[in-house]
């Protein structure tokens, strides 16, 4: 995409909420889509560039949401400072998780990260004095103001999420085009060859994990400020966060900057629509549709929608075993 096109899209995205009702449902759905686009983009650094299929990103997301909210409740700390704390804690957690999981690949890496997310969920459920336990935790109500991230109407938080998406996307693009991106792709394509030409593969993977974890934790803070209430099973959930984050990138197109954005803009509104339309009639139907779409996507084009654009013109058929 050309620069002008990107600038135009960004301008349209920034102006869009002015055309929508400020407390409306549409702006709520779009804000959520922007959040998940940003999350998918952060995941993309590890999942897309290094091809490490993390199923445990909820660990970082939940750490950010809990850390900032607890600090705000206990010490009245501004969420902006909570954001800084979350970046640090998310990066630290990612470094700690990387130590035992770094050598693992493919299925093993997915399994290990999945378990890491689950560990955090159990801890958050058990440490009730700090986290509120399974009953969940609420962001305290306070006076409106930018400093406490408390806004009137839905527009400011929309712009905040848009800003977050831009920041995460820029980070992703800088990494992808820079030396780290090339090293990550070398690790993805052939780790032995990467080692042989002098890439410190452990260090490269650690860097990617820490950046991705820190960004994901920061987005957890924004989620807390957007939703006001959450519990361990939501923010540390496998299906609600870990799989969903990865899904944005996979449906859109793994390893590309546009992929998670495209994925989130399709999946989140679809999910919300399906929930609104189907959940009265039969519990579980909307989720069933969601699962079926995922299966269909994986079978039709595992490289995501971004790849479909090219395959319309030329499509070599893969022989199935």
């Amino acid at each position: 995409m050309s620069r002008a096109l990107v600038a135009l899209a960004l301008l349209a995205a920034a102006l869009l909420p002015l055309a929508l009702e400020s407390e409306g449902y549409a702006i709520h759905v779009l804000t959520l889509a922007l959040l998940f686009a940003a999350l998918g983009q952060a995941w993309n650094i590890v999942g897309g560039l290094a091809n490490q299929m993390s199923l445990g990103h909820a660990a970082f997301f939940g750490i950010g949401a809990y850390a900032a909210t607890i600090l705000q409740i206990r010490f009245g700390l501004s969420p902006w400072l909570g954001l800084v704390v979350a970046l640090a804690l998310g990066g630290l957690a990612a470094a700690l998780i990387s130590l035992p999981t770094m050598r693992l690949r493919g299925h093993y890496f997915a399994l290990a990260t999945l378990a890491c997310g689950e560990v955090m969920r159990v801890i958050a459920n058990t440490a009730a004095p700090l986290t509120g336990g399974p009953a969940g935790i609420s962001v305290p109500f306070g006076a409106e103001g930018v400093w406490m991230m408390r806004f009137e109407g839905g527009r400011p938080i929309y712009w905040l999420m848009l800003g977050a998406l831009v920041v995460v996307t820029v980070v992703f693009e800088v990494i992808r085009r820079g030396a780290l991106g090339y090293r990550l792709r070398a690790v993805r394509e052939n780790i032995a060859a990467a080692e042989a030409i002098g890439v410190d593969t452990a260090r490269v993977k650690l860097q990617a994990a820490v950046i991705s974890g820190a960004l994901t934790a920061a987005l957890g803070v924004l989620y807390a400020q957007f939703n006001f209430f959450f519990d361990p099973d939501t923010v540390f959930g496998v299906a609600s966060i870990s799989v969903r984050i990865a899904l944005m990138a996979i449906i859109g197109g793994i390893g590309t900057a546009a992929g998670p954005i495209l994925g989130a803009l399709i999946v989140i509104p679809l999910e919300e629509f399906a929930n609104a339309a189907l959940s009265d009639r039969a519990a579980g139907l909307s989720q069933l549709v969601y699962g079926a779409v995922l299966i269909a996507m994986v079978l039709v084009e595992p490289r995501g929608l971004m790849a479909l654009r090219f395959s319309w013109t030329f499509r070599p058929r893969r022989a199935s075993a």
Binding site: A110, Q287, V298
Partner: peptide, 21 residues
């Protein structure tokens, strides 16, 4: 692996919600 992992993850969602329905 990404296709294999997410096919089975999709299957979790489908099977659980089919049972719920």
């Amino acid at each position: 692996p990404v296709a294999q992992i997410f096919l089975t993850v999709g299957l979790i969602i489908v099977l659980e919600n089919s049972a719920l329905l």
